[in-house]
Computed example of a mutant assay.
Amino acid sequence: MASLQSKRTEKRSFFATLAAVFWSFVGLRHLADYEKDATSFNPFYVIGAGVVGVGIFIAVLLVVVKLVVA
């Protein structure tokens, strides 16, 4: 039982959070991964990864628009 408690409270790194947010943007997340993520991610990391992901998404859109318009 103690090992289950330690696995639930184990926090994951920012890069693991960034990867999970990326796959969430794409829409390719497994239910088991989602359930594991819900208990192991630091909320501040999720917010930071979301902001980084949105920034990258906007930058890619701007580059595509500039290429199409040019």
Rank of each mutant, 00 (worst) to 15 (best):
M1R: 13
M1D: 14
S3Q: 15
K7W: 08
T9R: 14
K11N: 02
K11I: 05
R12K: 07
S13V: 07
F14W: 12
F15L: 13
A16I: 03
L18V: 02
L18P: 04
L18R: 10
A19E: 13
A19G: 10
V21Q: 05
V21T: 03
F22S: 09
W23L: 09
S24P: 02
S24G: 12
F25L: 11
V26D: 03
G27Y: 00
G27F: 03
R29G: 02
R29P: 04
L31G: 01
A32V: 09
D33I: 07
Y34G: 02
K36F: 05
T39G: 05
S40V: 02
F41S: 01
F41T: 00
F41N: 00
N42H: 12
P43W: 05
P43D: 13
P43T: 14
P43R: 14
F44N: 07
Y45S: 09
I47L: 15
G48F: 10
G48N: 07
G48L: 13
A49T: 06
A49N: 00
A49S: 07
G50K: 00
G50T: 05
G55S: 12
G55H: 08
G55Q: 04
F57M: 04
V60N: 15
V60P: 04
L61K: 10
L62S: 15
V64N: 05
V65E: 13
K66R: 15
K66F: 10
L67T: 06
L67V: 09
L67R: 05
L67Q: 13
V68I: 15
V68E: 07
V68Q: 11
